[in-house]
């Protein structure tokens, strides 16, 4: 049996969007998505909330693990196009980050239209706040007053090197949403990881 989507599509997507907008405007700070819809495995409810809030028949989505049930669910509820190749995707749903494709496999935009670039939704086990002096990733950039530190684990070993390499292409780039449980944390292309 197919799972439901948002109970109140208009208000649920509006309240989720406002958190996504604040997440993108205040990078590296986890925010709580107010309404999570049911989601078939391996998609997490928070990732499904982002897809249903932002995607429709005009967007193409690449699924790292295109299980039949997820495909049916997304086609029915969002009517979206599924991309066969990562480079064709407006959005990508990364359900197993340890084996995700390299970041440069995704579209990073055109010099005249840097907005024609992919947004990645990456499912993590947890997003952990870091106590003062604890080990984590420290970020700076637009939207961050001084610096923000947070622990983002479970990514490929060379993920941050790949991302740093893309920074040379600014304003081209890829924007990231990390989700865990009910939390979302965004890293737009302009956010820099500071060396430990």
């Amino acid at each position: 049996m197919m799972l439901a989507a948002f109970a109140n599509p208009v208000f649920d997507s509006q309240s989720n969007f406002r958190e996504l907008l604040q997440a993108m405007a205040r990078p590296a700070v986890p925010r709580t998505l107010p309404v999570l819809p049911p989601a078939p495995a391996p998609a997490a409810p928070a990732a499904m909330a982002i897809v249903l809030t932002l995607c429709d028949a005009t967007t193409s989505v690449w699924l790292q693990q295109p299980e039949d049930e997820v495909v049916r669910h997304l086609r029915f509820h969002a009517g979206l196009k599924l991309a066969d190749r990562p480079q064709d995707a407006d959005f990508a749903l990364i359900t197993n980050p340890a084996s995700m494709p390299p970041l440069d496999a995704f579209a990073c935009g055109d010099m005249r239209y840097p907005d024609r670039s992919a947004s990645l939704i990456i499912q993590l086990a947890a997003i952990n706040p870091v106590a003062a002096g604890g080990a984590g990733n420290t970020f700076a950039g637009p939207g961050i007053r001084d610096t923000e530190t947070v622990a983002i684990d479970g990514l490929p070993a060379d993920f941050w090197q790949q991302r740093a390499a893309l920074a040379a292409l600014l304003p081209l780039g890829i924007d990231l949403f990390f989700v865990a449980g009910q939390q979302v944390l965004a890293l737009p292309r302009t956010t820099r990881l500071l060396e430990g």
Partner: peptide, 8 residues
């Protein structure tokens, strides 16, 4: 809007 925020 999300792309606009990502590319100030």
């Amino acid at each position: 809007l999300l792309k606009a925020v990502a590319i100030p």
